[in-house]
Design a protein around this nucleic acid. Structure first.
Ligand SMILES: [Mn+2]
Ligand SMILES: [Mn+2]
Ligand SMILES: [Zn+2]
Ligand SMILES: [Zn+2]
Lengths: 144, 144
DNA sequence: TATTTTTTTGAGATGGTTTATCAATTTCAA
DNA sequence: TTGAAATTGATAAACCATCTCAAAAAAATA
C-alpha cells in the first residue's frame, strides 16, 4: 500500500536529491507526523513523537522542520513566543486570525487586502517581498 | 525655560500618579531620549544613554520602556530579533513598511485595509482586539 | 558485498534577548 | 526630617533556538 503522504514525501526526496542530503528514518517519521497538523511548534512535535521514538532529539526536530521550510512544505510563523510551523504542503498563501482566549487559529485569504498592500507599497516606492498580517481577537465561543 | 517634552512628561507623571509610581531622574532621562526617536531598541537606548549616565542599567531601560508602553507613550513592535519601541506619543494607529535591504521603516495608515480586516474578522465570528500588518520588501534606493 | 565517504544524529553547550532577584539607594508623603 | 514604599543596578535566570562534535547511519564506490 502507498503511504498516505506519498506526494509530500516525493517533494521532500526531490529537495534532498538536489542538495546532497540524505533520506533518514527521522525525516520520514517527522514528515509523517507534521503533515497531520495544521500549525505546530517544534516542542509540541517533540513531545508527540517521544511516544514513537523516545530517542529523537529536539535539535533534530528543529533541523527537520527548518528543512521542510526550505523544501516548501512548511512556513515558520511567529505568532506568540514559540515559532509555529505552518503546514503549507496543500495550500497557498494565507493570513491568520488568532483567538487570544483559546489560541484557536483561523486561516483566511483576502485578495482585496493583498491588492491594497501592493498599492501602499508602490506609493512609498517599495517592492514587497513578503508580508505578515495577523488579526488578534476573540472568537465567538470566547466572547460569551 | 519649559522642557521640549513637557506634554509627554505630563502624560508620564499622570500615569505615575495613578499607579503609585515615582518620578525618578532615570525615567526623566530615558523619556527625554526616547522622544527624540521614532523606533528604537532597548539596547540602542542603553548605548546612547551611556554617554550621559554610564551607570544606567540595561534592566532599567527595559523596565522604563515597558512603563512607557503602559502609559500609552510607546508600543512594543517585533520586527526582527530585538523588540523595537515605537514612539507613539504624537501619532495614532499605524502599520509599517520595512526595507529588508537597509532596515528603513516607513509608517502608513490605510482605512480601507482596516475596514477589510474587520470584515474578515466578523465573517469568521471574531472581534478584533489588535492586529499586526508588516510589509517587507526593498525601498527604492535598495532596489537599484 | 565490503569499503569508504559524506551526512546526520543526539546530547548537551552556547547564544541572544528579556525578565527576575535582591540589597542598596532614592523618592516623597507625613 | 523621618520612614515606608518604590526604584535602581548588577547579575542570575529563563527561554527558545542554534551550534558543537563524536558516534551512527546512509549512500556512493569498489
Ligand atoms: Mn496557516
Ligand atoms: Mn511606527
Ligand atoms: Zn477562542
Ligand atoms: Zn532600503
Amino acid at each position: 500500500m502507498m503511504s498516505k503522504h506519498a506526494k509530500e514525501m516525493g517533494v521532500l526526496k526531490e529537495h534532498l536529491g538536489k542538495h546532497q542530503l540524505k533520506f533518514t528514518r527521522q525525516r520520514e517519521l517527522i514528515l509523517d507526523a507534521f503533515l497531520k497538523q495544521e500549525h505546530i511548534t517544534a516542542e509540541a512535535m517533540y513531545h508527540q513523537l517521544a511516544r514513537k521514538d523516545p530517542h529523537l532529539g529536539l535539535a533534530t526536530i528543529y533541523r527537520t522542520l527548518n528543512l521542510f521550510c526550505e523544501a516548501g512544505l512548511a512556513q515558520a510563523r511567529h505568532f506568540g513566543t514559540q515559532t509555529q510551523y505552518d503546514n503549507v504542503s496543500h495550500k497557498g498563501h494565507h493570513d491568520h486570525l488568532i483567538c487570544t482566549g483559546c489560541g484557536k487559529i483561523v486561516e483566511f485569504e483576502n485578495c482585496d487586502i493583498e491588492r491594497l498592500q501592493e498599492e501602499v507599497a508602490s506609493r512609498n516606492g517599495f517592492t514587497i517581498q513578503t508580508h505578515r498580517l495577523e488579526l488578534y481577537g476573540l472568537c465567538s465561543r470566547c466572547r460569551h
